Amino acid sequence: MSRGSVLQASEGSTANPREIVLVGGGHAHVHVLRSFGRHPDPRIRLTLVTKDLDTPYSGMLPGLVAGLYDRDDVYIDLEKLCAATGTRLVHATATGLDQGRRHLLLADGSSLPYDLLSLDVGITPALDRIAGAAEHGIAVKPIGRFLEKFDALLERLYRPDGPRRIAGIGGGAGGVELLLSLRHRLLRDAPAHGLSPDAFSFALVTAGDILATHNRHVQDAFRKTFAEQGVRLIENARVREIRADAVVTEEGMELPADAVLVTTHAAAPGWLGNTGLALDENGFVKVGPTLQSLDDRAVFAAGDCAALVETPREKAGVYAVRAGPPLARNLRSAALGEAPQPWRPQKRHLALISTGGKHAVASRGWLYARGDWLWTAKEWNDRRWMRKYKDL
């Protein structure tokens, strides 16, 4: 009998509850915590293993960078969330799995037994694809690490001799929002630091068209926004190297820059290679429609670290958020000996993309709209989502 069959055949009891171990405090897992906290079952015990005790919400990152939010607005306190939901918290770093014994391996040499395990550990920067990126680039993923670097970057930017030529690499929604939000922040706050807003220059380099997965109207709207805000846009130019003073494309063009934000190329956490799980060519955990690993039914994965084999989707926070409910439902079902149900994420989602301040562009399929009211709607929706995990 396979490992998955054994798991499905037995249920927990109050004396020996089924052990569900969540690794990582990503968007899907915070929903699992809330779901099990609202509907506890004495036959199940939930444990969260995380190296970070708070987790940022990616949807509010542009507002934080723009200076429209405080740190507390965008972070979920995992200690408080675990305490409020009755979840055991283990502050540790995962390094691999012993699938035979069903143990999660930890960096301190210890291990943690599980009946079911779920991975929501995000992605890491793949800076090795651009020469000099590790030394001179600032990777945006993972977001938690970026925000630590962002505080240091702001301090440098506000110095009299600090960086003035800011470049972004990557023309997806994340890269566009980040650069425009940083511009908004600097131009607003520069005078308070004795600096002229005109001292700063901004540029974005993208290997293809800007916002390539969005419709033409959205792309043209941001081309116009970049022009109006004086941001240089270089499309269809792949970056070969980042130097201390410039970004160099494969065609040999040199763009002067002394602060470079990198939003391209994300990789799976390296330790997933020590799990023995089936991984795709980029190192992400292959999962089926039930979010279970293709070769170990005791292991689930969601968010950016998961590769949905039958329904592949881009690495976007919206899919991690929407994976939360089916993941919680299927973990509960599997723990109680019931059959997990398939989940098919929608192919298109509404994206509200910030233009830097309190203004946004809406994009979904052929849909295009823009206005201050869209930013207001986005803020209302983001704050409503955050209240679910902060006001418990």
Score class of each variant (00 low, 15 high):
S111A: 15
S111N: 14
L112H: 13
P113D: 08
P113V: 12
D115V: 08
L116E: 05
L117G: 13
L117I: 11
S118T: 01
V121Y: 08
G122Q: 04
G122T: 03
I123Q: 13
I123G: 07
A126Y: 05
L127R: 08
L127W: 02
D128G: 11
A133P: 03
A133I: 00
E135V: 01
G137E: 00
G137S: 09
G137T: 01
G137P: 04
I138S: 15
K141F: 05
P142C: 15
P142K: 07
P142G: 13
R145C: 10
A152I: 00
L154H: 12
L157K: 06
Y158F: 15
P160R: 11
P160A: 12
D161L: 07
D161S: 13
G162Q: 02
P163A: 12
R164D: 09
R165A: 14
G168F: 01
I169V: 14
I169L: 10
G170Y: 13
G171W: 01
G172C: 12
A173V: 00
G174C: 09
V176Y: 09
E177W: 00
E177Q: 04
E177T: 01
L178V: 03
L179A: 13
L179E: 08
L180D: 06
S181Y: 01
S181L: 04
S181F: 00
S181C: 09
L182N: 02
L182M: 09
R183N: 10
R183Q: 15
R185H: 12
R185Y: 08
L186E: 01
R188I: 01
D189N: 14
D189P: 05
A190I: 04
P191T: 07
A192M: 11
A192F: 10
H193T: 04
G194K: 09
G194C: 08
G194I: 00
L195V: 01
L195F: 00
S196R: 10
S196G: 13
S196V: 02
P197A: 12
D198H: 15
D198G: 14
S201R: 04
L204W: 02
V205Y: 04
V205C: 12
T206M: 02
T206C: 15
T206I: 04
T206H: 07
T206Q: 03
A207T: 07
G208W: 04
G208F: 03
G208M: 02
I210W: 00
L211H: 04
T213N: 11
T213D: 14
H214N: 06
N215T: 07
H217N: 10
Q219A: 08
A221G: 11
F222W: 06
F226Y: 13
F226V: 09
A227T: 03
A227R: 11
E228G: 14
R232A: 15
I234R: 14
E235I: 06
E235S: 11
N236C: 14
I242Y: 05
A244R: 11
V247R: 13
V248S: 12
V248G: 11
T249F: 11
E251D: 15
G252D: 08
